[in-house]
């Protein structure tokens, strides 16, 4: 059997089976520019896009980042997320409520801000680059007001094969409203061409 075709077919099937409805039309220019897959559910818009290492490297090198820092970043798997709250109440973007698992169901380690701070410290990366890198990362925790977007990268230890993401969003001022749950699997860590 043609393996790439099976993989593509399986990815499409998994995307179609995702628990959340998928629509193709972005509702704001921000979303359009962001691109990638889009899910909408219960007044929440979620988009995601895996970033190729060469693309990430070009972004940071283009902003003058030291090569050592860029080489370090290239080792990670970058997934950009965009979330927009279109509900009348608050939504909580809380990465501790997200899980990333590989094709065997094993958890994938997320590379958090303390990890990067430690790496930048060791590599003596100047503050301005650390600041920019930090601003390109998704926040760990953020309450989203009505109409508020949040976007940024989540970094993972790269794994081969598909990644399953379960993202839970508590709602309400005190996080006591219904929890919105997204689950999707059509995602993988792109690698540089050999």
């Amino acid at each position: 059997m043609n393996r790439p075709l099976v993989v593509v077919g399986l990815s499409i099937a998994l995307s179609a089976c995702a628990a959340t409805p998928v629509v193709n039309k972005p509702s704001s220019e921000e979303e359009r520019v962001f691109g990638g897959a889009i899910h909408r559910q219960d007044g929440l818009v979620l988009r995601y896009r895996a970033r190729a290492p060469e693309g990430m490297a070009a972004f940071y090198l283009g902003r003058g980042f030291p090569k050592t820092a860029v080489d370090e970043a290239r080792q990670a798997c970058f997934i950009s997320f965009y979330v927009r709250n279109e509900r009348p109440d608050k939504v909580w973007f809380d990465l501790s409520r997200w899980s990333f698992t590989d094709r065997n169901g094993q958890p994938i380690r997320r590379l958090t801000r303390p990890h990067w701070d430690q790496r930048w410290e060791r590599l003596k990366v100047p503050m301005r680059f650390r600041a920019t890198f930090g601003w390109t990362m998704a926040p760990e925790l953020r309450d989203l007001h009505t109409s508020e977007p949040v976007a940024g990268n989540v970094t993972l230890v790269p794994v081969p094969g598909p990644i399953r993401v379960i993202a839970e969003f508590p709602t309400g001022e005190n996080r006591d409203g219904p929890v919105i749950r997204f689950q999707f699997e059509g995602l993988s860590c792109p690698r540089d061409p050999a």
Binding site: A131, T132, R142, V150
Partner: peptide, 15 residues
């Protein structure tokens, strides 16, 4: 804000 430290003190929710 060349090193980004003034911005950090304001703690914006994002840019």
């Amino acid at each position: 804000d060349k090193d980004g430290q003034v911005t950090e003190r304001w703690k914006p929710r994002g840019l």
